[in-house]
Design a protein around this nucleic acid. Structure first.
Lengths: 230, 230
DNA sequence: AAGATACTGTGTAATTTTTACACTATCTTA
DNA sequence: TAAGATAGTGTAAAAATTACACAGTATCTT
């Protein structure tokens, strides 16, 4: 396409902070880079945006290529555009966070050529990251926290059926602080979008807890004019 | 600079939603375009990002070129990257909002070649805008509202000395709802970052109100571990 | 089967925050 | 000095938040 606009010796990319929750810990998916720059370093998954591709679809595509998953909860949270953030040239990157249900797979096989492998890393024990990805991660967790305070996005990280304790542990992991059990339950249940199931936790060596699920229909009904608007 | 990266037939830009508050109304600064596309349409001020320029500095520069003002409160709030948002080609735009003190000037003389003139428009009576700028504006006001709920950014829009009524009118204009006078005052004063001055409003034909100013030092002290972190 | 282990599930009182609401005080102008 | 216009103020009720501890139940061990 001839645009009539000046040509730029520069590029856009998408970087993704992919959050998962497992074993009571909040984790992000990192790739080990197979190529320079930052060969052998850990980095956030990301890639260049094609010229004929919207940034939303680019983010979806990149996530799909890496994980094989679609329809994840994704949220654009910031764009990083320092001139020197990429050693090879001008690359402006639009950062997204994604929330996924880990479901036990620890390793994810990336299909792409630029990454050797991908692993989940607990956010409290991250390796050094290439580029400015540590900054990007820091920003992402702050935005995620803020978001959680007005939208119940945590459910995107849990299995469909979960216990209130699991939910609380997740909130604690994201907010990085202990919460009071009774107050937490009271509050969560008061929202009215949790559906209690006739089912209990299985495979635990102690009293099994009730399972709940997030009732999105009820949620939308209740909060259509509140928390829902962006 | 030779980057080794593929060349893109595409461009970055910055668009700014510049908020001002005047005569009890929240306004934004629009330019009338002198060039195609959207010649003679109103649009948000914005421009391309130079290749050797960070996006923060580009935003600062663009704002300065248009208004002559520096050191405004600016905040990046979203990046728009649909393939077809710009009729001439692929332009990804990083959107910022800026808050400025109008101080009575209604017209701002833009120095740039692409804009005929710039005018303040009340946000409740905006003309049709070129490109996807109406979407960008909508997003900006939502982000601004959200932000105001946890950070006292309103002061950036008021003169240094202001009355509590002025402050309340501004909150009402941003949040688009009436607030209770007594409750508003009680709450604002309770934060402890408003400094009451030994001075009164002048030039009004009724009882003059006390003037206050925002005490940024106190604010930082009080909220350093709370509202302050991003 | 008895006891140890480990987590589930529950209520209340105190405190803080939010909300609703109306009149007097002060200044200016005619 | 009266009329007009906004400033400035308090309280009570309701709602939300916080702090706090133990009995119940399933499983496992011996």
């Amino acid at each position: 396409m001839e645009t009539g606009l000046p040509k730029f010796d520069s590029a856009f990319s998408i970087d993704c902070v992919i959050f998962g929750f497992e074993a009571g810990e909040l984790k992000i998916l990192l790739i080990e880079r197979a190529e320079d720059p930052f060969k052998d370093w850990w980095a956030l998954p990301g890639n260049l945006v094609e010229n004929d591709e919207g940034i939303e679809s680019a983010a979806t595509r990149i996530l799909y290529e890496l994980t094989g998953w679609r329809e994840l909860h994704m949220e654009q949270f910031h764009t990083f555009g320092d001139v020197n953030r990429h050693p090879l040239g001008r690359v402006i990157t639009v950062a997204y966070y994604a929330l996924i249900r880990i479901n036990g797979k620890k390793e994810v096989k990336p299909v792409t050529q630029y990454a050797k492998k991908a692993f989940w890393h607990p956010i409290n024990d991250l390796p050094r990251l290439g580029f400015d990805h540590s900054d990007i991660f820091e920003t992402s967790i702050q935005k995620l926290r803020r978001r959680l305070s007005y939208q119940p996005i945590a459910f995107e990280l849990l299995p469909e059926k979960f216990t209130l304790t699991q939910l609380q542990l997740l909130y604690e992991a994201i907010l990085n602080k202990k919460l009071d059990k009774r107050n937490f339950r009271k509050k969560m249940l008061s929202y009215g979008f949790l559906k209690e199931l006739d089912e209990k936790q299985k495979g635990v060596s102690y009293r099994a807890a009730k399972l709940y699920k997030f009732d999105r229909r009820k949620y939308n009904k209740i909060f259509q004019n509140d928390m829902n608007e962006e």
